[in-house]
Design a protein around this nucleic acid. Structure first.
Lengths: 225, 225
DNA sequence: AGGCTAGTGACAGCGACTGACACTTCACAG
DNA sequence: CTGTGAAGTGTCAGTCGCTGTCACTAGCCT
C-alpha cells in the first residue's frame, strides 16, 4: 500500500521532488500539531493550509482527505510491524510469531519513524485517534485491511490457503481483537509511554489462553491496570 | 443505549406522538430503500427528505446524520443479541454462552424486527454496510462499544470485575474478531440468506480452538465456502 | 533558449450539517 | 371551548469538507 516509496531516506532527487516532499512533510507536521493542540474536528483544512502557506486545494492534492494526514504516520508503524512479522523464523507458530512481532515492533518504533516525526508525536496522534470517534472508526476499518494482509502472511507461513482454511483468519482476528482492547485501554490510561503500551500488549496477549478456557473459575486471574 | 423505548409495539399515545413515529419510520424506510437502490454516498439527504415530503432540516431532527438512519435497524438486532445473551443459563461458560446467543439470535431475528422492517431489508442494509467503507468504519466503531457492553455482561455472569481481570475483555475481543471475519466473508459471498450467515458463524466459531493451537500441522483443517 | 508539463492558486460549486427564527398545530388548563 | 404554551416543522443563511476547472508559474529536458 505504501511500498512504492523510493527509499526510507530518499537521496535527493530533482529539485521539484525535494520541494514536493518538503511541502508534504510540512503539511503533515502542521496538521498533526494542530489536531493535537485543538482537536481534529476543531481544526479546519484552511488552518492547516494557512499554517504552511499553501492553498487549501494543495492540501487536498497531497492528502485525499483530512483523515489521511492522521494516518500517514500510522501507516509507517503498521508496515514496521508487518516487516517484523516477516522476519520471524518459520519455526514459530502463528500466535507466537505475531506476539513476538508486536513486541519487537514496539521496541524499535523509534528508529522506524525517526526520520518523519518524533515518536512522541506519533504516540500523541495515536491517542488522538483513540479519542476521536470519527478517527477511531477509520482506524478500525484500516485495521481490518491490515488483518487481511496479516492473515495471508500467516497462511503463507503455514503453507495454507486463506480461503480454504479458516484458521489463519480466525487466529488473526482473535489476536487483533486483543490488540484492539489493549490500544483502547492504553488510550484511556495515564501512562502514555511506549513502554506502557508494550507492557499492556504483553500482559493481554498472555490472557488469550486462560480467557478461552471453558471454565474460568478453575484458572487464576491476574491483576493489572 | 436504546433501552428507554416505551415498548417494542408502542400502544397509540397522543396524536403528536403517532405522527412523529410515522414520519420517522417513513424517513427510515425511504432512506434504506434509496441507499440500497442507488448506494449510500450517491443518495443525498435532500432526496430522502423529498421522498417523504419533509424538509432536509426535519431529517436531521430525527437522525443526527446520514449514518444514523442506516444503523437504526442494526441497533435493534444488536439489542436482540444482548437479550439472548442475558437469557443464557449461568452454567454455560463465556464462550459457550456467546456462541449459543448469536445462533439463537439469528434464529429469531425475523420476529425481533418484524414490526419495523422486513428481515430482507435488514440483510440488504447489512451488506450495504459491509461494502461501503464509510459505513463499515462506523459499524466497527459501534461494534467496539457493543463489545464493551458484552464484556461487562460476561464479567457480571462470572462475578468478575472487568477492570481487574482481563479475561472478559480478551474473550469478548477474540469472539468479536471472529464474528467480524464472518460478517465480512458473508458480505462478499453469494448467499445472502440469514441461514448462510448463521451457518458461517457456527463454522468459524468452531475454529477458535484449533486456530489458537500452537501448531496447526497436527490439527485437521476444515473445508468451507 | 524554448517548449513541455508538473505543481499550484483562485474560483465556483456540491453536499452534509448547524443555528436562528417564524409559523403551524397539538395539548392541556381553566 | 378557548386561549396559551410548547412541540414539530419549514425557510434561510452560513460553515466546512471536498471536487472540477482553468490559468499561470517554474523546474525539466532537448
Amino acid at each position: 500500500m505504501t511500498d512504492e516509496r523510493p527509499a526510507p531516506a530518499a537521496p535527493a532527487a530533482g529539485l521539484r521532488e525535494r520541494k514536493k516532499r518538503r511541502t508534504r512533510d510540512a503539511l503533515l507536521r502542521a496538521a498533526l500539531l494542530l489536531f493535537i493542540a485543538q482537536g481534529y474536528e476543531q481544526t479546519t483544512v484552511d488552518e492547516i493550509a494557512d499554517a504552511v502557506d499553501v492553498s487549501q486545494r494543495t492540501f487536498f492534492r497531497y492528502f485525499a482527505n483530512k483523515e489521511e494526514a492522521v494516518f500517514a504516520v500510522q501507516d509507517l508503524v503498521e508496515s514496521h510491524f508487518v516487516a517484523e512479522l516477516r522476519a520471524r523464523p518459520a519455526t514459530e507458530g502463528p500466535l507466537r510469531a505475531m506476539r513476538a512481532a508486536v513486541l519487537a515492533a514496539w521496541d524499535t518504533v523509534e528508529e522506524a519513524l525517526s526520520d518523519v516525526v518524533p515518536v512522541e508525536l506519533y504516540m500523541r496522534s495515536y491517542r488522538l485517534i483513540e479519542s476521536t470517534p470519527a478517527l477511531l472508526a477509520v482506524h478500525l476499518r484500516r485495521s481490518t485491511e491490515l488483518e487481511e494482509r496479516i492473515s495471508r502472511l500467516i497462511a503463507e507461513r503455514e503453507g495454507l490457503d486463506v480461503d480454504g482454511d479458516p484458521r489463519p483468519r480466525v487466529a488473526v482476528a482473535a489476536f487483533s481483537g486483543v490488540m484492539r482492547v489493549t490500544g483502547r485501554l492504553w488510550g484511556q490510561g495515564e501512562d502514555t509511554s511506549v513502554a506502557a503500551i508494550r507492557r499492556m500488549t504483553e500482559a493481554y496477549l498472555d490472557q488469550i489462553g486462560p480467557a478461552l478456557a471453558a471454565d474460568w473459575r478453575t484458572a487464576p486471574p491476574v491483576a493489572r491496570t
